[in-house]
Simulated assay, not measured.
Amino acid sequence: MIALLEWTGERIIPKLMKPTNGMLLEHIARYYFATPYIKGRVLDIACGTGYGAHMVAKDRKRELVELVAVDNDEETLLYANREYNHQKITYQKGDALDPSLPEQLGQFDTILSFETIEHVTDDLLFMDNLYHMLKPGGILVLSSPFGRGRGKQTSEPFHVHQLTPEEFEALFVRFSHVEIYYQRGVTFEKPREGVRYFIGMAVCTK
């Protein structure tokens, strides 16, 4: 299990972290935030170690038909399937930028994408895939840290770039309804004057 700490990327492994770890609490809070939107067929793209998919599957087992949890790392998925197995979850390997992903996976009533878009080289292709995988009337819940902007260097070693708040909001122009929230620790709120926010959360209806 210790080898998991050496994985590339930013893997959250709750069983190896203190319950009070700030990063862990922030990640768990995103799944709690998304729980009311879970229904029907659900996709968790870049699911990581599977703790979040398992959490929402347990909480919304009556509303959930199937949850497809996708990640691009085989070892991560093996761990997820072992530690966070659930009868309604299917862990599956996939590349978020694969143009054939919508054809492979089909469409979903709800899509979750937390702290993923800053890791991909083409965020617009990523959004295109998500849009095509969402059923009409379906809901996308997506978060991202803010930074200097598309194509600009970031101090985070595993981030390709971090969008500005304006670039983040522009990702969702195709959706019929969009609500933007900002995360502060484990809470989510609408913007308040004089408060600097580091993470955005969008709830988008197709």
Rank of each mutant, 00 (worst) to 15 (best):
K61M: 12
F158E: 10
G194A: 03
Y131A: 08
V178G: 01
K88S: 14
L97Q: 12
W7A: 01
K61G: 09
P14E: 00
L67Y: 01
E167H: 10
E66W: 08
F198D: 12
I117W: 02
T49M: 06
I117S: 03
M17K: 10
V195I: 12
Q104R: 11
G137K: 09
T76R: 04
L134K: 01
Y51L: 02
L97S: 11
T49G: 09
T90F: 11
G48S: 09
E156A: 14
A69F: 07
K190H: 03
Y84C: 00
R62M: 15
V178Q: 03
Q87H: 13
I111G: 04
M1W: 06
G200W: 10
F126S: 01
E193G: 12
V68H: 11
P191C: 07
E75G: 06
L171P: 03
M55W: 15
A46N: 05
T187K: 13
E179F: 08
C47V: 02
S113P: 00
P136Y: 00
F33D: 00
D95G: 10
P136N: 00
R150A: 07
G50N: 11
L4Y: 01
S100Y: 10
E6L: 14
F126C: 02
V173I: 14
L140V: 08
H132W: 13
E10M: 08
R174S: 09
A34P: 03
V42S: 06
R150H: 11
P102W: 00
E66H: 11
T8V: 06
E75L: 07
A57M: 07
Q87A: 14
Q183H: 05
Y84P: 02
Q153M: 13
K61C: 11
K93V: 13
V68I: 13
G52M: 10
T121V: 15
T76C: 05
K15L: 07
V173M: 13
V195H: 04
A69D: 06
A170G: 04
A69Y: 08
A3N: 12
A53G: 12
P136G: 00
A69I: 07
V203C: 04
M133P: 06
D123Y: 12
R82T: 13
